[in-house]
Amino acid sequence: MSYLLTQLVNGVSLGLVLGLIAVGFVVVFKSTGVLNFAHGSVLLLGAYLVARLHPELGFWGALAAGVAGAALVAALINTLLVRRVAEHDPGVLAILTIGVDILLLTELTRQIGNDVLDIGAPWGASVVGAAGVSLPASRAIAAGTAVVLFAALGALAARTDWGLAMRAAAADPDTASLMGIRLSRTSAVGWGLAGALAAVAGVFLTSYPTPGVEPGVSVVAFAAIPAWVLGGFDSVPGAVAGGLVIGVAQALAIGYESELHFLGGGFGEVVPYAVMVLVLLLRPHGLFGQKEAIRV
């Protein structure tokens, strides 16, 4: 029983981190209509900055620098590149971000080399436990941070002028523009926000029990794509819920791998995608997505 509970708690904490990444996908998609393949390398950039700067700035200073750096780079990708593309076609824009991802990832891989960089988090490798369930401290802190960030995000979107502008721009860019909302600014803020969230997720994905910052971390962002799809593309609560579903499913598949052996070794890695294809078969617009109404 406590084994099952441990797996569930692990899955929830992993799911919340995936949710942070998936919310980044949602925000970028809502503010600019782009499927952002560069998200993974922005995440890696954030983690890399923290790992490189923490000996000099201390962990918290490095964290601030990493979040700011990732946000700045993401916003610049939008302002300098995405907005310059003449054809506003989702496929073309997605491929542009692939190009950016290749450039950023190649440079980061070159900088990191074959090393695995330590993130230098103050919670280290400690483990917290209660009621027979043990959890790495980093995962517990990740879960708490994610919940706080989601709440803050919800409050910002609902209660500030800035959130109102973002929502208006997402709902109808042309009308919002006519009402005096600067789309260049809202889209840059959307991308920057996604970059900042990715950097935070990157820090948690590279602290204990994972070894540290290495180029492969950027691939983890892909596991958040199913979470995003499950949530229905344009819903922030949906992305969080999708992250939880994927995180729990993955943790259970890995935890009970010996019982699931008939599905093949390493099934835990493909669980997110299996769940995604199944859900899309049953609900083509995800769990929380709204069906597009077509007016003729």
């Binding site: 499927l35 799809v229 390493g266 890695e269 493909v270 995608y273 995604m276 083509p284 617009h285």
Partner: peptide, 16 residues
């Protein structure tokens, strides 16, 4: 992109 992402799943399932 809905279709693009669903087909993304195929690549990972096939590899498995």
């Amino acid at each position: 992109i809905y279709l693009g992402l669903a087909s993304l799943g195929l690549v990972f399932l096939g590899r498995h």
